[in-house]
Nucleic acid binder design. Structure first.
Lengths: 132, 132
DNA sequence: CTACATAATGTTATATTATAACAAATTTAA
DNA sequence: TTAAATTTGTTATAATATAACATTATGTAG
């Protein structure tokens, strides 16, 4: 919400909007909400999103085509992301767990491929929805 | 490739096509390739895909909006999927690693949320692309 | 400062991915 | 063999994302 350095006007507008939201926000929802602030067309939103992802301010939740603020000081510019997604209420939370990230960052499969990046999405029922 | 039981004609046609492909296939690529077999419109493809995912025959690679055959006899109807994706050649391979799947299936975060399902995508350079 | 390079912007158009809605045909199972 | 459920075929449209290009702003080296 507060002014970040290094960000251009459009990037800041888009980031502000995502930060204000409790839920992941979709690109066209962002667009319709920032029209009053002078952003008129999809490319302006997608460009800002691309940059914000690149610098690690936000992440894309792939299974939802939606965007969330990075809550993790350790995810190292978007290279190691994990989310918990409730299948009922659709709530998405970034998982911050150093054991998990250490495990995955050092994971090696049998092909010898060295991983630079991962994205993990867990699905289940959150506390609230479980008790319904 | 061989006739599977339980599948309808369209489901079988779509599955055959995905099985024949070495790479993840996109929905509209499937569509254009099965027109000669009588599938004319997107909903026919998407319905087949939905069913095939549900029964665990195929997976969706979320970061690519593309579909691959399940290579894993243990992924238990799509509930535990992991992929290795080369950022250069875009090759996608399903990771079959029981340590990894055990670790993730039993993973618990601090919210008490119990996970039923996960999808993990690793990115890096495959052997071939690394040595270029 | 100034000129070059780089990045960001604004804009129009279009490509790509996915679903809604509904009538008809087929399969399943009571 | 009828009712229910599923799958199909079809048209239309919604939702997500990028191409292309002219313009403006910003950063940086000389």
């Amino acid at each position: 919400m507060h002014k970040e350095n290094n960000l251009t006007k459009n990037q800041q507008i888009v980031l502000d909007l995502i930060e204000k939201s409790k839920e992941p926000v979709k690109a066209y929802s962002i667009l319709s909400n920032v029209k009053k602030r002078g952003i008129n067309a999809p490319p302006q939103v997608y460009r800002a999103l691309e940059k914000l992802i690149k610098i690690g301010k936000i992440h894309k939740v792939e299974s939802k085509n939606a965007f969330v603020v990075c809550k993790n000081t350790n995810c190292e510019v978007s290279n190691a992301t994990a989310f918990s997604i409730c299948q009922a209420c659709e709530k998405v939370t970034e998982i911050i767990n150093s054991k998990l990230s250490k495990y995955l960052k050092s994971f090696q499969d049998n092909t010898g491929m060295k991983y630079k990046k991962y994205n993990l999405e867990f699905f289940g029922l959150c506390q609230k929805c479980k008790s319904k």
